[in-house]
């Protein structure tokens, strides 16, 4: 059943997000091509047309930056509509556990968010390749070579087990924080939906800020317990960062804090859905 739930989640999310992905690709690559063409036609001249196209390309870069946020909004919207609006009458009468319903939304949301970030990065690199290409060329392949070199340098640096461990810790931390961010949004909008009679979404947003502050406080307490509050307040010095043990301790503290908070929020959210759900 979990596989079927996941299938319908992906179907619904990609249907919502596909227009955003297409818009980003079209606007960004389109403006990159136009910027390139106008740049070749009007090189050396200050002209209005060139300024307009510079503006368009600026907007397209903003769009790339905003796309992940827009996708996040769509993921939250899917969660809210499918759980707390009329669709909830079907969702919560399916012969599956509440945890399965929730996990399918969480996993699909995290994967779609990651996918949107990857699309943004690829589109960004492609537009850079178009803009910086030489006359008579469409794509500047040198950028790919530069990226390849950078990756080689990084992988070359990760020869020692210690550095590899740090990279793994950073990846685990990033995955955990993405899940934790989605759970935080889901929980906030769950509280908004089950607590308020009107302005449920507004309450959800308010709850989000409240819980977020509390979570940051707990994170700093946990990190403080690992390092001592003074060290956190003062910030880590270069000398501290030189010590691998300190970096490990810091990352492990952050991983522990993110995992702990995510688990607590997750359990609380499931409990609310099981016991306090009341569809309008």
């Amino acid at each position: 059943m979990f596989g079927k739930l996941l299938k319908y989640e992906f179907k619904a999310l990609f249907r919502k997000c596909v227009s955003i992905f297409l818009l980003i690709v079209a606007v960004t690559l389109g403006s990159a091509v136009i910027t390139k063409l106008t740049g070749s036609l009007f090189s050396g001249e200050v002209n209005i047309l060139g300024s307009i196209f510079s503006l368009i390309s600026g907007i397209s870069f903003i769009l790339i930056a905003a796309s992940t946020f827009i996708v996040l909004v769509l993921i939250i919207n899917r969660f809210y509509t499918n759980f707390f609006k009329d669709e909830g009458y079907l969702t919560f009468t399916l012969p599956v556990k509440v945890t399965q319903l929730y996990n399918a939304k969480l996993l699909a949301g995290a994967i779609v968010l990651l996918f949107s970030a990857v699309v943004s990065v690829i589109v960004f690199i492609l537009s850079l390749m178009i803009i910086s290409s030489e006359r008579g060329q469409f794509l500047n392949m040198a950028i790919i070579n530069e990226i390849g070199k950078a990756i080689k340098e990084i992988t070359g640096y990760i020869k020692s087990f210690e550095v590899l461990l740090i990279v793994i810790e950073i990846i685990v931390y990033l995955v955990l924080t993405s899940l934790y961010s989605i759970i935080l949004f889901y929980l906030s909008f769950t509280i908004g939906a089950i607590s308020a009679k009107k302005h449920k979404v507004a309450l959800g947003v308010g709850v989000y800020y409240g819980i977020n502050i509390a979570c940051q406080f707990v994170t700093s307490l946990i990190a403080g317990a690992f390092f001592g509050t003074a060290a956190i307040n003062a910030g880590l010095t270069n000398a501290d960062l030189d010590s691998m043990v300190t970096v490990h301790s810091f990352l492990l503290a952050m991983i522990f804090a993110a995992a702990l908070i995510a688990t607590v929020l997750y359990i609380f959210n499931i409990k609310l859905l099981k016991n306090k759900l009341n569809l309008d």
């Binding site: 009329d86 669709e87 009458y89 012969p95 556990k97």
Partner: peptide, 21 residues
């Protein structure tokens, strides 16, 4: 009530619960 009972209960609410798309 739980997944096992939902598998044998067919429920028609007083509103339509479909996604329009």
């Amino acid at each position: 009530p739980g997944p096992e009972t939902k598998a044998i209960v067919s429920y028609l609410p007083e509103r339509t619960y479909f996604s329009d798309w």
